[in-house]
Design a protein around this nucleic acid. Structure first.
Lengths: 220, 220
DNA sequence: TTAAACTGCAAACACCGTTCGCTATTTATT
DNA sequence: AATAAATAGCGAACGGTGTTTGCAGTTTAA
């Protein structure tokens, strides 16, 4: 039981005594986000973040309990970039899909974000703002909040899926080295097609429309 | 361009000369899977895998070019545990959902699997067997193979989403420390509900049915 | 028979997250 | 105003990580 620690959001940003800190959680998170944007999550080390701030790795532990805390800060800072205002109140479905599109471009701008949202992530206030905004958009839906949260979770998962497949496409000859015509005739034939049919123009919107109209809007 | 390396599946398992190797890719992968099952992916280190095999970390590099190769082997070994026979040919939708259920229990048995399938994963022959099997099940569907692969990819993503949400539930007071009644009234109200409505009994099947009937089966 | 290719291994390297001891600084208490 | 407590910054260190390297022994091809 000693392995777990209080999430960073439950700890005060600084104590009541001692000299004024030279940095802040926000500035540390911002520096880490910049590093991750340009070099991936692997470029975010205690030492790299510290040196970007002009300090040392050990000093960061005056602000963070662990590297996981840093990841939590990064996630919340990135999600906090999402626009805050309510979308024009039209159809709740289109409004919600618009929110999902905002999240998709955020995931594409910060490719490290989906993988940084891990089991064990402690979500911060900006992330809660996002969930609250989703619920506000879904207010016209007569379903229970539990159902809505299920739908929101599924939507976030689908967005991550699309962000992963649209970013940095892998050359097929790298992905399919293990395909043999004998064992995988259907798959092999599909790879030989010279002019594959164009992908669905708006597969993203189509998928979410299908999913959300099925999961919600039971007007019971 | 020197940073990339040929995927492990394109390299011969062993050379033509020299003494017979004491281990194999299969035995190494099996040892790593056992470690990951009991201690998570973090328990899989070159040294731990090596000592489980009675050898040293450096020796593993006679079989693997990097730790990423080891992860590729693990992924293929785990997916290779899926049953190989065709399901009874009934409705393609129910047959495919049955395959998805098999994948779900595999993900639950190997919680490290979804996170180990990362961008950059090189899929091996057993994984190709799985994709081939999916395409065989979807043979009755009149859509193009491109559409089917889109649907398969989306299905795999949804399965991972469900596997993540069903394993090791996090206590809500850990997840929602950042919720304030003022900034998040809807969310806050939802957390106060004493008896939340029971979750959809088969949300998994329902979601996939919705998704697949929407994405496929256009009998055009 | 000789040379090339390969295996196994121990040691080392650079880097990682994290801890510790120290000095200096600020605040709360007396 | 004086004192004690709590905090900030920092450099050095610790154990762990993935990976490289040099070397000795083994097997195969030429």
């Amino acid at each position: 039981m000693a392995g777990t620690r209080e999430p960073i959001w439950a700890r005060p940003e600084r104590g009541a005594r001692g000299p004024q800190p030279e940095h802040s959680r926000a500035s540390i998170a911002a520096a880490a986000v910049v590093l991750a944007d340009s070099g991936g999550l692997g470029a975010v080390t205690m030492r790299s973040v510290a040196s970007a701030l002009g300090t040392s790795a050990g000093s960061l532990y005056r602000y963070l309990g662990s590297r996981e805390d840093l990841l939590d800060l990064m996630v919340d800072a990135a999600i906090g970039e999402l626009p805050r205002g309510d979308p024009p109140a039209g159809d709740w479905l289109e409004d919600f899909i618009a929110v999902a599109r905002e999240l998709l471009v955020l995931y594409q701008r910060h490719p490290w974000l989906p993988e940084t949202i891990r089991p064990g992530t402690s979500f911060g206030p900006r992330t809660m703002d996002f969930f609250e905004r989703c619920l506000v958009v879904l207010k016209p839906v007569p379903d229970s909040t539990t159902r809505k949260l299920e739908a929101i979770g599924m939507t976030v998962g689908v967005v991550a899926q699309f962000a992963a497949s649209t970013g940095a496409p892998v050359p097929p000859e790298m992905l399919f080295v293990a395909v043999t015509p004998e064992a995988h005739p259907t798959l092999h034939a599909a790879l030989l097609v010279t002019s594959p049919p164009p992908p669905e123009p708006d597969l993203f919107g189509k998928t979410l429309r299908i999913l959300l109209t099925g999961l919600l809007r039971q007007v019971s």
